[in-house]
């Protein structure tokens, strides 16, 4: 056996490697860490954690790069939204954080050696992914947040809107689950 293979074998058998990098962490660990980093996020950026708001900015920047203008759009009409768009991608904490989430997730899969490019199994999957993405994006902007910005950050700011969002999401998940079983089984 080569030295490289021996080393890999040794790492795979290491108890700390298994516990910290290979196996999934318990839900409670995730919950505690998410709460702690929510506090850090609020303290450093002055805003609670959100994900989809940054995507709307990305859309605006792409649209502007193609020669469009969103100045007259109601969604971007506030001074705050205009300032964020003016300042650009590198000065938007939400955008940088989203890039961090993607890179962090990639790193975690690579360290666990679980990276795999998955095959698309059917045309139905493509259709469902596009339709689902559009509905989620549209819904998240109409509701001023997704399950992070509206639900998690809403509830942790003691806002009633977070709980109302939770009720709506629960009902939506039931309907979505039924549709999934009907069309994807």
């Amino acid at each position: 056996m080569s030295a490289y293979k021996e080393l890999i074998n040794k790492i795979n058998k290491n108890e700390f490697y298994k516990r910290w990098l290979k196996d999934a962490w318990p839900y409670i660990t995730g919950a505690v860490l998410l709460s702690l980093f929510q506090i850090v996020t609020l303290a450093t950026t002055k805003n609670p954690w959100g994900v989809t708001g940054a995507f709307a900015n990305w859309g605006a920047w792409i649209y502007e790069a193609l020669g469009g203008s969103v100045d007259k759009w109601y969604y971007f009409s506030s001074d705050g939204a205009q300032a964020t768009l003016q300042a650009g991608f590198l000065k938007d904490p939400g955008s940088i954080r989203n890039i961090g989430i993607i890179i962090g997730a990639l790193l975690a899969t690579l360290l666990a050696s679980q990276f795999k490019i998955k095959k698309i199994k059917s045309k139905k999957q493509i259709f469902a992914a596009i339709l689902g993405g559009l509905l989620m994006g549209y819904g998240a902007r109409i509701a001023y947040g997704c399950n992070i910005g509206a639900l998690f950050s809403g509830i942790s700011s003691l806002s009633l809107s977070g709980w109302i969002f939770a009720i709506g999401m629960f009902g939506g998940a039931i309907v979505g689950g039924k549709l999934l079983v009907k069309y994807f089984m």
Partner: peptide, 16 residues
């Protein structure tokens, strides 16, 4: 269940 996202593998396994 390769290429299938949650919860499809679980429901398929339960039915099978």
């Amino acid at each position: 269940c390769m290429g299938e996202a949650c919860p499809v593998p679980l429901i398929k396994a339960q039915n099978k």
